[in-house]
Simulated scan of single mutants.
Amino acid sequence: MRKFFFPTLLICAMISCSDGELQIETIDFDSVTAESCNPPQADSENLLFKLNEDEALILELESGILNKGTLDETVTSTSAVPSKSKLTYRFFSEKVTSNYFCDDVPPATPTVVNEIKAESGTVTIETKADADKKNYIHTIRLSDISFVRDNGERITNLTISEFGEVTTAIPN
């Protein structure tokens, strides 16, 4: 019996070994605060990101999407992904910091292990003036986001509906 047990155990161990492919089961960034390198601008493209240890969710907003406010009401704007705005998920070799995105020359480490771009979805931005009517507050939400890996596998367990809030100055 021992003659068959150990060879069988060895074969099972070899078959169950990972082929090194990264398995992404969940993308969860709802409890993480959105960041940017520069204050968001109403009349230009904006790069926002959320960092979660060795993961990043990067949102590139189309130009002018934050310039949709009025003083006395809430205005809702939408932007299609990926035709107008872009959403990218990156998995890094180790913990990533905002320096990776904000330094003129990005640090050599961590390195990107995997990058997946969203193939569809919608960015919805609700804009309203703050109480002092000096700034617009833009609440950014994501819906129907679809990430598809190179092998065609769709990542469906997404917890990224609330991207966050950013503020822009109300023009004089």
Rank of each mutant, 00 (worst) to 15 (best):
T127V: 08
S83Q: 10
K133V: 10
S85D: 11
P107E: 02
Y136M: 02
L66S: 11
G152Q: 11
K84L: 09
L51E: 05
N157K: 14
S16K: 04
G64H: 09
R90A: 08
I15V: 15
D144V: 00
V112H: 03
S143W: 05
L61D: 12
S85H: 11
T122R: 02
E162T: 12
F5N: 01
S120Y: 02
F6Q: 03
L158V: 09
Y100V: 00
V96R: 02
C37L: 01
I140H: 04
D150G: 05
E119N: 11
S79V: 07
M1N: 15
E21T: 15
I27T: 06
N151A: 09
N135Y: 13
V112L: 03
P7C: 03
D28F: 08
P110Y: 07
D144S: 07
L158C: 12
S143R: 02
V32P: 08
V96T: 06
I11W: 07
T97V: 06
N135S: 12
D150V: 09
N46P: 10
E115Q: 14
T167Y: 05
P40R: 02
K117D: 12
T76W: 06
S143V: 01
K86L: 13
T109E: 07
I160F: 04
T124D: 05
N46G: 12
A34I: 13
S93R: 08
C17W: 08
P106L: 04
M14R: 03
T74Y: 01
A42H: 01
K133I: 03
T26V: 13
N135F: 12
S44M: 07
C37G: 04
F91L: 15
E45T: 12
T33Q: 14
V112R: 03
S18I: 08
T168V: 09
N135I: 02
S98I: 04
I15C: 11
D130V: 04
S79W: 05
V148K: 10
P106Y: 09
M1I: 15
E115K: 13
K117R: 12
D132K: 15
E60M: 10
T74K: 14
F4R: 09
M14Q: 06
K84F: 10
S63W: 02
L142M: 05
E153L: 11
I137Y: 06
F163C: 07
T111M: 10
V81M: 07
I65N: 11
N157R: 14
L48K: 08
D72T: 13
D103N: 14
R141I: 01
D19G: 15
F147K: 01
Y100P: 00
V32R: 12
T167D: 04
F5H: 05
F92D: 01
N172Q: 12
E53F: 14
G69E: 03
E21F: 09
A169T: 12
V166M: 05
C17P: 00
F6G: 00
S146N: 05
S98T: 11
I58H: 02
G164S: 02
A34G: 06
I24E: 07
G164P: 05
L61K: 11
M14S: 14
N52F: 10
A34Y: 10
M1A: 15
T111P: 00
D54C: 07
K86S: 15
E115T: 15
K128V: 06
F147A: 06
A129S: 13
N52Y: 11
K133P: 01
N172L: 14
G64C: 06
I145Q: 06
V123P: 03
L9M: 10
E115I: 13
